[in-house]
Amino acid sequence: MRDIAYLELVCPAGTPAALRTAIDAGADTVYCGFRDCTNARNYPGLNFDAKELREGVAYAHARGRWVIVAINTFPRAGDVGPWHRAIDTAAACGADAVILADIGLLDYAMRKHPNLRRHLSVQAAASNPLSIDFYRETFGISRVVLPRVLAVDEVASLISRMKVEAEVFAFGSVGTMVEGRCTLSSYITGRSPSSDGVCAPAEFVHYREDGAFMESCLGDVVMNRYARNENAAYPTPCKCRLVTNDNASYLFEEPVGLNAVSILPQLKAAGVTALKIEGRQRSRAYVGQVVTAFRTVLDGLARGESKPQAVADLHAMAEGGKETLSAYKKGWK
């Protein structure tokens, strides 16, 4: 039985070194993916093979922690083999759970590996009790990762009406899209985040200097134009700067990073089981710094501190160098 202090801390690992860093920094659970299209962070040089996963699981289990495997993209028509193999490999390597989004894969995992926990990925975009109940009754999911579009009171209301654990995002990228349904990046690049596992694939991203400005481009489309010393961001279509009526502005979402550290007691009171740190595509330095900060805060709250204590500044880790509570404190519906 694991000893979870306050809330379970679920941390990203893009490499075996990042997995060890996360465990050493105090992650309760580490999530990772395979080096292919079966996970939503399919970037060059990133992710695990079967041997690395087996070693990572052994490292975590020796310290009483969990490793769960994200297989959270959607199989291409007529090519489900890589996704089935990924589930089989995760089970064979001793993973503690798989994170799935596709109903066919949930069904396969339930039938083939009934004792392997199934977590419903944020990519499934399940955000109401009926939907979550359907996944629980039909595929026996143990946990749902809630989409990043819910306010704290909505999270609380949802949890009170569902019978599985809830995991919510606490730090990292924010997304305004319906998770798992966004086609903005595929429209521009021809590669789908939902099936190929990459939004704004690196091979389509380029930066160019234009006098005092820097332009970031995705394919042939200029996503943003930065003045000297202005903080930069990833060239993702939902956070591009658009010119309307001669004004350049972020119409969908500004390049900002989620940081929910200040509302952890509210999330706990809402009935949340686990906090997810986003960022398997980030470095192990990011993993070490963010996990250490959250571990410190969670341990303080577990000791009875009434509110989160100030920890290391995570400002620089946030996309665009700016932090937000995003939908947790939204003023829109």
Partner: peptide, 22 residues
């Protein structure tokens, strides 16, 4: 050496990339 997060350096423009990002 992996002592610092490359994305954080990129956000603050401490490093710049020109060409093939992949």
């Amino acid at each position: 050496e992996g002592r610092i997060d490359s994305d954080a350096l990129f956000f603050t423009r401490a490093i710049t990339i020109v060409g093939d990002t992949s």
